[in-house]
Write a protein that binds this DNA or RNA. Structure first.
Length: 245
DNA sequence: CTTGTGTCCTGTAGGC
DNA sequence: TGCCTACAGGACACAA
């Protein structure tokens, strides 16, 4: 059923890229043939410009443009996805989650009313719900920990127990953390993470306040807490027991 | 529907 | 030095 590499190639051949967009964690190359190339970087995926280099390790796809330039998709851990979608058509399985994405926390339309509506009455931990792309699209493990810290909320709180001021703070924190991540060109950890198209690295990892900082001092001004790490839903979770309630 | 767990994949780090 | 295990994470399959 899945068209595979040959189908992707067929969908792209001869097409012109009209523009590039993003929705949640999906990148979309809009084409002039009524289709779109969708890329999801997973956790180790990279879009890279290599020029005339020979094939790189873990390079799964290379786009060749009429002017001789190239764009490569590289992904060591193979959690990423590549597929072609048709405008107005049904989405292939591999990107089915795209049609369920909620509003973007960095856009005007995102509100405390929307977030609260998804948290109220829920018994699941608030962090688990933040990882749900219908609730907070674009948020992953790092940014959920950081947003909860900025909002002063423990990640293991029952989502439905959050009071209106907390929901409000979390709404703001989600937007600000994502915007800061973009401002500092993403988070590049020692074992991988985001890499720019020319191979450059981001610097948001230097500004993280809890993620990856177990045993270190909380970075909130005036807080003397020590960051704790705990498994939550199979995910490594970081928080400050002193300033997150 | 809700909630929690397991799986995919590979490079790297740590233990011994 | 080298082998072994644990860990990292996004999205989804699946179970209860």
């Amino acid at each position: 059923m899945h068209p595979g590499p040959a189908g992707v190639r067929r969908g792209l051949l001869g097409a012109t890229v009209l523009g590039v967009g993003r929705r949640g964690k999906y990148l979309i190359f809009h084409l002039n043939n009524g289709r779109g190339l969708v890329l999801h970087l997973g956790m180790s995926g990279q879009v890279r410009r290599f020029g005339v280099d020979p094939m790189h390790r873990h390079e799964h796809m290379r786009l060749e443009f009429s002017d001789g330039q190239t764009l490569s998709f590289v992904d060591a851990r193979r959690f990423g996805r590549v597929c072609v979608i048709t405008d107005g058509g049904p989405l292939p399985r591999c990107v089915r989650g795209m049609e369920r994405l909620g509003p973007e926390p960095i856009e005007k339309g995102y509100s405390a009313a929307y977030l609260g509506g998804h948290l109220s009455g829920r018994k699941a931990r608030v962090k688990s719900l933040l990882l749900d792309q219908r609730v907070a699209c674009g948020v992953g493990n790092i940014y959920s920990d950081e947003a909860l810290h900025r909002a002063g909320i423990r990640p293991d709180r029952q989502a439905g127990s959050l009071k209106p001021p907390e929901v409000s703070r979390l709404t703001v924190a989600l937007g600000s953390v994502l915007k800061d991540g973009i401002r500092w060109c993403g988070t590049t950890m020692k074992d991988g993470g985001f890499v720019l198209v020319d191979g450059g690295v981001g610097s948001f990892q230097d500004r993280l306040r809890v993620y990856g900082r177990e045993g270190e001092r909380c970075r909130r001004r005036g807080c003397v807490g020590v960051v704790r790490r705990q498994k939550l839903g199979g995910r490594s979770t970081h928080f400050c027991p002193a300033c997150q309630k």
